[in-house]
């Protein structure tokens, strides 16, 4: 169960061809150099891009099956997707932004207090700082009660201290929410700090050599994401 991804899509400079799985309550970190196709991968999961071939399945719900012409639009996937410089709705104040897509029974006020943005509730997005905006974006996404959380370098543009605080909040979420979480970064230290599993992506393919680790396969020949906890001493190989 959980989430399984097996997608091929030709891009301008390489073909994206990646398959992996991610179980509920696991935090999978996609790591790799800029332009490796990590963001494209996230957009494919969110439903913002169409693959050429492949399947995306969550629990027993088929999101994408190109052989059978199945493609669930982003509206029907109930995914939370936060990325760098996430645009909040400029015409709404922070409270309305968070409540924008809130599911029934979501305690928006409580969520905002949890993420320390309650005092900003009457401000507009353009009147708060970058860190506060990203926290607000996370709240907006969580208020919808997503069945999967995608975080694409959500805190890269922030200062070290804010980044550390937000990162620990993300780690906290993993135990609170029983959903698969995928986190994109190109910072190996960040990956090691938060990951349950790490999947290195280089030029559209899973490339274990990028962090000097042997590739492991399961009995069906699929690449097994490595366990970061078991391999604490990873290093970059350029």
């Amino acid at each position: 169960m959980g989430f399984s991804f097996n997608i091929q899509k030709p891009l301008i400079s390489f073909n994206l061809d990646v398959s992996f799985t991610c179980e509920n309550s696991r935090l999978l970190v996609l790591i790799g150099p800029s332009g490796a196709g990590k963001t494209m991968l996230m957009r494919l999961i969110a439903g913002l891009e169409r693959p050429k071939t492949g399947r995306i399945v969550y629990e027993n719900q088929i999101w994408v099956d190109m052989d059978r012409c199945v493609f669930l639009p982003p509206q029907s996937r109930c995914v939370g997707y936060v990325f760098q410089d996430y645009p909040l709705f400029p015409h709404l104040n922070i409270q309305r932004n968070v409540a924008f897509a809130a599911g029934s029974g979501t305690d928006v006020d409580h969520l905002m207090k949890d993420f320390d943005i309650w005092h900003l509730r009457h401000r507009k997005p353009q009147e708060i700082s970058g860190g506060e905006r990203q926290r607000c974006a996370l709240c907006q996404t969580l208020a919808r009660k997503p069945q999967m959380l995608l975080l694409d370098e959500p805190f890269s543009a922030l200062d070290v201290i804010t980044r550390r605080t937000l990162r620990s909040q993300v780690i906290g979420l993993r135990s609170k929410l029983d959903i698969p979480m995928i986190y994109v970064t190109h910072d190996i230290n960040e990956a090691l700090a938060i990951a349950d599993d790490i999947l290195p992506i280089v030029a559209g393919k899973v490339d274990r050599d990028w962090i000097q680790q042997p590739v492991e396969h399961d009995e069906r020949g699929n690449v097994i994401p490595m366990k970061a906890a078991r391999r604490p001493r990873l290093s970059l190989a350029y």
């Binding site: 439903g47 982003p74 509206q75 709705f89 897509a101």
Partner: peptide
Amino acid sequence: IDRRLLESAYVLGLTPMSAFVKVVLPN
């Protein structure tokens, strides 16, 4: 209007029609 604003509206569950009314028009 920032294209990403529309994309996040879709990911948040809005149909193109309701995104037009709730996001595009007010902005």
